[in-house]
Amino acid sequence: MKIAIASGKGGTGKTFVSTNLFQIFQSSGHHTLLVDCDVECPNSLIFFKLKKISDTLVMEYRPKIDLDKCNYCGRCSDYCEYNAIFCIPELEQIRLLSNLCHGCEACAVACKQNAIKDSKTEIGKISFFTDSYNHIFIEGRMKEGKISSVPVIKSTIKEASFLSYDYMILDSSPGTSCPFIQTATRADYIIIVTEPTPFGLSDLQQAVETLDTLNKNYGVIINRAGLGNADVYDYLNKNHIPILAEIPFSKEIAHLYSEGKLAVSYIDDVNELFKGIYNNIIDNGSSIY
């Protein structure tokens, strides 16, 4: 079972939930993988003492234009949905704008002159790590200066899926756009982490609407409970969305987190909360309610 930890709003505690939930799952004897899909800023693995096993590069197609064969007809440029080929037939000018290219290869199909050659560019990297208990940790990371994170997220989850596991915990990117959707569509269940503030509510609503269109099952963890107001609770109750846990707004939790420590290993109440979520998942699978 794949469980994605997502949020609309950034900084609500996705990584906090991912790492602590992983700890509970693996200490309960399940073969669990922690996969950091927040490829723009991966940081789940800093909470564990790890050794790198290997790296896999994520490559993406880029057209290479052979100027000896090109007749500047502009077909490739017309085919490109992203305006990534700048071609002015009148001036016999053609140039690839690599940062706009999504690697779809439509230009190669369009070209009648056989002037477009296949080439690849590195857009990211998937790294595999292990700890002293032989658990596997996987991290996707975009290459600096590259624009699109989606293919890196896709490849990261694909590579992770080749391994054997009982549970896979996917730490998603924030937001509700493509990176979030890439992670959520590949998960059996989504845990949305929010906070009881107006920002938290606004972004939670967007996440819920997005997941509804994807037909996904989800539940909500309210982090920093005690902060803000009751609007998030009203919204969840009105829409019959399950609250999986409430994590209190606590200086002690924040302190441990800032030291790179897992709260479940230090605070009994937090351990109980995460055990509750764990039991719920074990008992109900993806139909938690």
Binding site: N83, I88, E90
Partner: peptide, 14 residues
């Protein structure tokens, strides 16, 4: 969706 600038350069260059 993307690349409105380069596409517009192409348009005025024509």
């Amino acid at each position: 969706n993307e690349g409105a600038g380069p596409a517009s350069v192409k348009l005025i260059a024509s």
